[in-house]
Design a protein around this nucleic acid. Sequence first.
DNA 1: TCGTTAACTTGACGACGTCAACCTGAGGGG
DNA 2: CCCCTCAGGTTGACGTCGTCAAGTTAACGA
Lengths: 233, 233
Amino acid sequence: MTTRRVRARRGEGALLREEILRAAEELLAESGTEDALTVRAVALRAGVSTPSVYLHFADKEALVEAVCMRVWGELGRLFTENLGGDPFLALGKCARAYARFALDHPVQYRVLMMRPSAAPGVPPAAAEAFRHMVDAVSACVRTRVLEGDPEELALGLWSAVHGYVSLLIAQPAFPWPRDREALLDHVVRQAGFGAAMYSRLPRGLPPSTELAACLDDFGTRLAARGGGEHPSA
Amino acid sequence: MTTRRVRARRGEGALLREEILRAAEELLAESGTEDALTVRAVALRAGVSTPSVYLHFADKEALVEAVCMRVWGELGRLFTENLGGDPFLALGKCARAYARFALDHPVQYRVLMMRPSAAPGVPPAAAEAFRHMVDAVSACVRTRVLEGDPEELALGLWSAVHGYVSLLIAQPAFPWPRDREALLDHVVRQAGFGAAMYSRLPRGLPPSTELAACLDDFGTRLAARGGGEHPSA
DNA sequence: TCGTTAACTTGACGACGTCAACCTGAGGGG
DNA sequence: CCCCTCAGGTTGACGTCGTCAAGTTAACGA
C-alpha cells in the first residue's frame, strides 16, 4: 500500500501505468465514491510520488478516462458472453447483464456514464462495446422481431436500460420496488417491447379507452401462442 | 457583479440567500459547466465575501441542493401545464416537455440527476414533481390504457425518458440521430407502449419470428381503428 | 447616545491538480 | 572495472478549492 515502490528497470517504465490504473480501480471500488479518486491517493496507493502519475497520464481526466476504458472493456465482454440462441432472448440477457453490472458497480458506472465527457469522439473500447449492442439488435432485425435502423434501435434500448439503472443509482430515495430482479424484468421487457412496437405504430392513435381494448386483445392473442420460454425481452 | 453588495438591514439577512441562489443559477447557466459553480465565484457574483455563503448554506452541497430544488420546481410546473385532455396524450406531452427541458438545460439537468445525492430522503420539491408524474399515470390507469401500480409505472416511464436525455447529454459522441424531435417521438412512444404492453405480456414468449408476426398483426389492427390524433405516447 | 447583536469580513488551514527543477541508479561503452 | 547517460523517478512550490475561527461594522431599541 504505502510501501515505496521499487524503481522499474530500464524500458519497463510503462509497468507503473498498469499499477496506477489498478490503484485507481481499487480506490473507486473500496471507497464507494469517486471523490476518493485523487491523484495523490492513487499515487500513494501505487507507492509512488504524486507527480509520477503525470509520467503516464496527461492529467487527472486522462487517468479517469483510462479507468473508464477498462469498464467499457468489461461491458463489452459481458455482451459477447450473452449472445447466441434466440436473438430477442439474447438481447434480453445482454440487457439484464448490463443492468446487473451497473447496479453491482454503481461507482464505476457513475464515473463511466454520468461524467462530463471531455473527449470529442467515441473511444475504441466504447465503440467496440456499442458495436456488440448493435450486433445483438441486428440479429433481432433479421428475424423481424425488431424493425428499423439497428444503431438507432440499440441507442433506444441502451437508453431505456441506462435510464433505469442510472436513476436507481443517482436517486435511490424514490419509491423503487423492493425486488430488483422483478424490476430488471420490468425494464427489459418494457424496453424490448417498446422498441418492437414502435415501428409498427400508426401515426394517429385511438383514444385511451379504445387503445386499452386493443392492447388487451393483443395480450390474450400472444398468450395463446406463447411458448414456455424463459421470460425475457 | 463584482460591486460590493450593500449590507442588508436588520432582520433581512435572508435576502442574501436569494441573491446567492440567483448568482449560482446564473453561473451554471452562463458557464455551461458545473465546475464553474464555486463557492468563491458565487460569493463574488453576489457581491459578498466568500464565507458569507456559509451564513445561509451549511456547505457547498447544501447550496447545490437548493439550486436543485429550484429546478425540481420548474419541472413540477412543467407537468401541471401539460395535464388535461386524453390521459395517454397528456402523459406524452409531459414526457416531451420534460425531455425538452433537460436538453435545453443540460447543465442544470446534470446537476439535478447525475450528482451523488447525499440527502437521505426525497426533498419536498422533488416529491411534488414526482407526484405529478404519478397523477398523470394514474389517469391512464383509470382509462385502463395502463395497468399496474401507478408509482411503479411512473418510475418506469421516467426512467425511459431520463435514459434518453441523460445519455444524450453525457455521451454526445455516440451516433445519435440528427432530428431531435423525431428522437423524442421515438423515445416517448417506445416508453409509453412498453409500459402499456408490459402488464399484458404472458410469462413465456414465442420465438422471435413468430413474435414478429404477432406484432405485425397488432400494428395493422391498430391502424385500422386509429383516429387522426396527434402522434404521441 | 450607547450597548447589543445581526450581518458580514479577514485571514488562515489543509487538500486538491499541476508544474519546473532536481535527483538517482541501471545498464552500456571504454 | 569505472563512469556517463538518461529513463525513471522525487522535491518543493504555485494557485485554487471548501471551510472555519476570530474579528469588524452598522442598524436598531433603550
